[in-house]
Design a protein around this nucleic acid. Structure first.
Ligand SMILES: [Zn+2]
Ligand SMILES: [Zn+2]
Ligand SMILES: [Zn+2]
Ligand SMILES: [Zn+2]
Lengths: 161, 161
DNA sequence: AAAAATTTTGTTATATTATAACATAATAAT
DNA sequence: ATTATTATGTTATAATATAACAAAATTTTT
């Protein structure tokens, strides 16, 4: 698979069709290589998450899912999201109670986001060494052992300023 | 007022009584100086938040409040929390849907937390230049203008490792 | 001090987010 | 084929948060 999309939504010339296609291909590959079951429901929820770069809430996803699968209920979507989040195919944005697709689930990473409060688009920082290093430094000073982190930066993207 | 408590809960020799007393004194002073109304309810909710260094959920606070004020309802506590959060007397921890007292509301700052997943205690980093700088750097690279941030670091505190 | 305006609190109802529990179906392993 | 495991279906409910309007308290203006 070739990557024809341009990195984040805040980059000019973003090709979203290619972006989604890449994401789905990567997901298929990842699940195959790790022997995970990307079932029909999980795959469809992932596609729905990738509908845009605005994070989607579970109930927004449920509504869309119901349009094509009338017996979908909250557990249907929460279970799919649990799976997708567990395997880094989707990240949860804590400050929004919402979910966003990850475009590099295959590389182990912590997630860090830029969230535009005007257009609501979210970009994931690509494994920021800078922030990770700073976080480690601060933690070390207090003898704290980091296992996970939530870094969500709110503000205005270049286009919205 | 003198500060007799030791900085964070992860510091040995933390004197929590002094910690709470200091926090309440600072709150009183801040509200006086800014002409804010620290009403009976707001003050009591702040005290309840400061009961410990474990973040409290709104409904945990409500339960405690009800023990002494039987007509307390969700809006009672959410409104008080709105006020307290607005004026930095309390911070919301997004990843926990919970609230924690701030010991330096008078200095303008972004909040960043270390959250121990074993003892559940939370320490606020004291205006980490390191992390803030890293965040600005990353944001600048994408032409993103930061207005706010959520930095919540999960792991084990020194005592719990 | 009285009246008016503003802010806070009381109260009821409801919206939003998320999970528990147990049954059935599908898939994988033996 | 049988058994075990995983995923989904289904109903109910828990947990978090806000809307809307009335009453009370406080502050400001007259
Ligand atoms: Zn895209
Ligand atoms: Zn990611
Ligand atoms: Zn303390
Ligand atoms: Zn603070």
């Amino acid at each position: 698979m070739t990557t024809q999309s341009i990195a984040g939504p805040f980059q000019p010339g973003h090709n979203h069709k290619a972006c989604v296609r890449d994401a789905m291909n990567i997901a298929e590959q990842l699940c195959q290589s790790k022997d995970l079951r990307l079932t029909k429901i999980r795959k469809r929820v992932l596609e729905l998450v990738w509908a845009g770069h605005e994070p989607a809430t579970a109930y927004q996803l449920l509504k869309k899912l119901r349009a094509e699968k009338e017996n979908a209920e909250p557990p249907t979507v929460y279970r799919a999201l649990d799976f997708l989040v567990e395997h880094n195919l989707v990240h949860r944005i804590e400050s929004l109670n919402a979910f966003i697709g990850c475009d590099h689930p295959e590389s182990e990473h912590v997630s860090q986001f830029l969230i535009c409060s005007h257009c609501n688009q979210v970009a994931e920082l690509d494994d920021s060494v800078t922030i990770n290093h700073a976080v480690s430094e601060e933690a070390k000073r207090l003898g704290f052992k980091v296992s996970n982190q939530t870094v969500e930066i709110m503000g205005l993207c270049a286009a919205c300023q």
